[in-house]
Write a protein that binds this DNA or RNA. Structure first.
Length: 501
RNA sequence: GGGACGUUAGCUCAGCCGGUAGAGCAGCGGACUUUUAAUCCGUUGGUCGCCAGUUCGAAUCUGGCACGUCCUACCA
């Protein structure tokens, strides 16, 4: 309750003014916002249980129900009316009439508005067109809606309004409800998968004094009592590995990361990832594990591993491709030879021709990565693990025992974008310290995304991190895939927007 | 950051060569006891995103600004 209620604002809008007048009349009659209606049935449950029954069977059964929901459609025909109410499960039709509901209640109903929340009790029946409905014997207005709903047929179509007023999107668009139901089920399926594999779910700090675990620009904030600068985390990685040092040999965390970078259809400043770590495993195990995770999630959430994304089909049931960066480049550009792609001068001249961004000081691996991102990444539609990442872009990954310039790392691409990133963890504290020091040099040279040195993390490694494999999976992008959503904003309930004018 | 497009009633949208604002839904009034986006009759409702400019006259043309969507760049 706030004080604004005492002086209702003058509504320029006529519809809202009329609804306020109706609410004022309700207040005079008694409790305007009653909370004693006992809802006993959900629409979908009733359809499941009784849709198959014939008109006569249903009449004989005399099923009494109590339903509640928001009135989405209303058809008044003099002495009888129909209303369609929507609850969390779906919709069901109400039949309101002078004969069954009473003339007084029916006349009151005629002044109810679309968007009002109703509670109805009555008996199930089938209409002439065989639609399961409630023959209402008692009808109550539980919550008056002061603002009119979007148009009943087209719903809300303005993208901005869908994002800013997600509640309206959810009320009026079946697809929005579907997407967020799938999101919830996806996270549930992931959680079940890890718990079944004896993982422990943990929460590590979201406010870091030293941001780490990824190459990204952090959000900066300030803690007053401690008078210290803090950062919203860019990744939970270093904390999760501290837990593995502590003996939590299988841990995962599903939560938000924050990166102070651009917004796009694939980037929101806060996004949800699962990161998980398992001791005594390596990156090869992770790839197999990831494949089975994706298959299980798709199966549990959609009932199938065959997906359509933006008009193209892919099947998570098929084995995921595994390619090195050079193989991936050659797959789409067979004119390049293996030798060329290992030739520094050639790589640089190609990158120059493509006007691609690259760091001239990079080694072969870094240049290959730049070329890969330019020429191949966006074409990797089917699930593909890209392996053999250069050490200079992987400061937390274990280097290969046979080829020290690359790491035991993969990234998983699907529908042309990165979905997951995993590697055998670097557990050599002296190597890690040297890599941090190299990052610090890069940061001092102006690389805003270079990592900070985290001395406590080094100290933890000095106590001994068992050989461990770890991975992060972008939940939002996975949900985009499972819901066939083109924009990350369609799978985040309240995507970041500029303040409303 | 760069580019394209958009912003008209609560919602979905028309509005041509510049002449002073339209429809459907929602609302209000009326008819109608099995409707399905119910139907039929009548009717209320607008600072045309904002600010300038051109013009006798701007929703319409020009410039700027704001916000948004998409593409692109950075990134996961």
């Amino acid at each position: 309750m706030n004080t604004e209620q005492a002086t209702p604002p003058q509504d320029a809008n006529q519809i809202i003014a009329e609804r306020r007048a109706k609410l004022a009349a309700l207040r005079k009659q008694g409790v305007a916002f009653p909370n004693d209606f006992e809802r006993k049935n959900l629409a979908a449950d009733l359809h499941t249980a009784y849709d198959a029954m014939s008109h006569d069977e249903l009449e004989a059964a005399q099923v009494s129900v109590a339903v509640a929901g928001r009135m989405m459609l209303k058809r008044v025909m003099g002495k009888a009316s129909f209303a369609t109410v929507q609850d969390m499960s779906g919709r069901i039709q109400l039949f309101v009439s002078n004969d069954n509901t009473g003339e007084e209640a029916h006349n009151a109903f005629k002044h109810y508005d679309l968007g009002d929340i109703l509670g109805a009790t009555g008996v199930l029946f089938k209409t002439k067109t065989n639609e399961l409905s409630v023959r209402v014997t008692s009808l109550r207005l539980l919550t008056k809606a002061l603002r009119p709903l979007p148009e009943k047929f087209h719903g809300l179509s303005d993208q901005e309004q869908k994002y800013r007023q997600r509640y309206l999107d959810l009320i009026t668009n079946e697809d929005a409800r579907r997407v967020f139901a799938i999101r919830s089920k996806t996270i549930q399926a992931i959680r079940e998968f890890f718990i079944r594999h004896d993982y422990l779910e943990v929460e590590t700090p979201m406010m870091h004094s030293i941001p780490g675990g990824a190459s990204a620009k952090p959000f900066v904030t300030h803690h007053n009592a401690l008078d210290m600068q803090m950062y919203l985390r860019i990744a939970p990685e270093l904390y999760l590995k501290r837990l593995v040092v502590g003996g939590m040999e299988k841990v995962f965390e599903i939560n938000r990361n924050f990166r102070n970078e651009g917004l796009s259809t694939r980037h929101n400043p806060e996004f949800t990832m699962i990161e998980f770590y398992e001791a005594y495993r390596d990156y090869r195990y992770l790839m197999d594990f990831t494949e089975s995770l994706f298959r299980e999630v798709a199966h549990k959430v959609l009932g199938t591993t065959a997906l359509t994304y933006q008009g193209r089909e892919l099947d998570l049931g098929h084995p995921f491709h595994r390619l090195t960066m050079v193989q991936a480049i050659r797959k789409y550009h067979p004119q390049f030879t293996d030798a060329q792609l290992h030739d520094r001068a050639f790589l640089i001249s190609e990158l120059e021709d493509l006007k691609a961004k690259y760091k001239p000081e990079d080694g072969i691996g870094g240049l290959q990565l730049s070329l890969f991102e330019e020429l191949a990444e966006h074409q990797l539609f089917e699930p593909t693990f890209i392996v053999d990442y250069p050490i200079e872009v992987s400061p937390l990954a274990r280097s290969s025992d046979t080829r020290p310039e690359i790491t035991e790392r993969f990234e998983l691409f699907m529908v042309g974008r990165e979905i997951a990133n995993g590697f055998s963890e670097l557990n050599d504290p002296e190597d890690q310290e040297a890599r941090f020091d190299a990052q610090v040099v890069a940061k001092e040279a102006g690389d805003e995304e270079a990592m900070f040195k985290d001395n406590d993390y080094i100290r933890a490694l000095e106590y001994g991190l068992p050989p461990t494999a770890g991975e992060g999976i972008g939940i939002d992008r996975l949900v985009m895939l499972l819901t066939d959503s083109a924009s990350i904003r369609d799978v985040i309930l309240f995507p970041q927007m500029r303040p409303e004018v």
